[in-house]
């Protein structure tokens, strides 16, 4: 677990939109360890997708890495400019599974061909060798009768099965890092549970490192070893799953957890975060969450908090950890995570 496979240092990403500059990632330093599964959690617009897209050179035309570096296998990915450079990484070393399986597959090609494309491009496999490998992969992702299924088109698959195909394409070339960008948001709860199980199995089998992106903290307890909470283009808290769920420190993490309907009590109001995320076109002063935090301190509006270490694995960017800050208790409802959270019904 200790070997770092990917590291970003003070990464800043900006977009130019209608003549204005949007600061999407504001100085993210992150270490991803080999073999772990790291979840990145945040609201829409928090920059979680943008962050991972920079790892694969998939930023839109109007976006660029402004400063900072992304270290992977001794190279700084932030310096990569040409498609040729990126093709040595993209799909081969780092692969991605996107949210909507309905749109990420080509409807005009059989799924065998689509997996084959990746194999031919990155591993030079063709003909029978490729076919054999395609069938192995399909079995690995839980698609039965691979010989028949590989000749079918995406419309002959259900939503859950299509997502399995997308995952098959992603793992076909045995990448080092698999990025899953909200892979289950478009799926039913039952299918979601199956896909999460599949991802966990594949991590073990292919020895993958997984970066899992979601807006729903309720989902990540299943897949994540570590969780990074993102807000307004910055990681505000990072720690192991246990640390984030059982002893969260940042008011934003508190708010995200409290708003989970799983923890709600019927007849009572569910906690909801007031206001909207900050506009990243503007310079953000202090703690970005302060305007929405009812218990914000004065300093939150003036100066950006540094990271405070809670433990070796747990860091939080919040002034509450400063020795001079008043003691603020996390909301009561979070106690229900340990009592209620594991006790939906007796199996």
């Amino acid at each position: 677990m200790s070997e770092v496979i990917l590291r970003t240092e003070d990464l800043n990403v900006k977009f130019s939109l209608r003549g204005r500059v949007l600061h999407a990632i504001r100085g993210v330093s992150l270490e991803v360890y080999k073999g772990e599964s790291l979840a990145i959690v945040g609201e829409s617009g928090s920059g979680k997708s943008v962050l991972t897209k920079t790892f694969m050179g998939l930023l839109d035309q109007n976006g660029w890495v402004d400063s900072g570096s992304i270290w992977f296998e001794g190279n700084d990915l932030a310096q990569y400019k040409t498609e040729k450079e990126w093709l040595t990484i993209r799909g081969k070393k780092i692969a991605m599974v996107l949210q909507d399986p309905m749109t990420s597959l080509n409807p005009l090609k059989t799924i065998g061909k689509q997996i084959g494309e990746a194999l031919e491009l990155h591993q030079g496999l063709k003909g029978d060798d490729a076919n054999k490998r395609i069938q192995e992969i399909l079995l690995d992702v839980g698609i039965k009768e691979p010989a028949r299924r590989m000749k079918q088109y995406p419309h002959q698959f259900s939503g859950g099965m299509r997502q399995r195909v997308v995952i098959a394409i992603a793992v076909a070339c045995q990448p080092d890092i698999l990025i899953c960008d909200e892979p289950t948001t478009a799926l039913d709860v039952t299918i979601q549970a199956q896909i999460l199980g599949l991802i966990r199995d594949l991590i073990r089998k292919y020895n993958l490192t997984c970066i899992y992106i979601t807006h729903d903290l309720g989902v990540v307890a299943n897949v994540a070893d570590r969780i990074a909470v993102m807000y307004a283009g910055d990681i505000v808290e990072i720690g192991t799953s246990e640390e984030i769920f059982f002893s969260p420190k940042h008011p934003y993490t508190w708010a995200l957890l409290s708003s989970l309907p799983q923890l709600g009590v019927k007849g009572e109001e569910l906690f909801s975060i007031r206001g909207t995320p900050p506009n990243l076109f503007n310079e953000i002063k202090g703690d970005a969450f302060a305007p929405r935090n009812p218990k914000a301190l004065n300093i939150d509006f003036k100066e950006r908090p540094p990271y405070f270490d809670i433990s070796d694995t747990h860091k939080v960017r919040c002034w509450l950890q400063d020795p001079r800050a008043p003691k603020v208790e996390p909301p009561q409802v979070l106690e229900r995570i340990s009592t209620e959270g594991g006790n939906l019904y007796e199996q």
Binding site: V189, T190, Q194, F245, L260, G341, Y345, Q347
Partner: peptide
Amino acid sequence: LLLSAVPMPNPVYERNKKV
């Protein structure tokens, strides 16, 4: 089955859960 599939915000429970 539907109940067992509901994701819960508790890593300890989730790791031992069987769908």
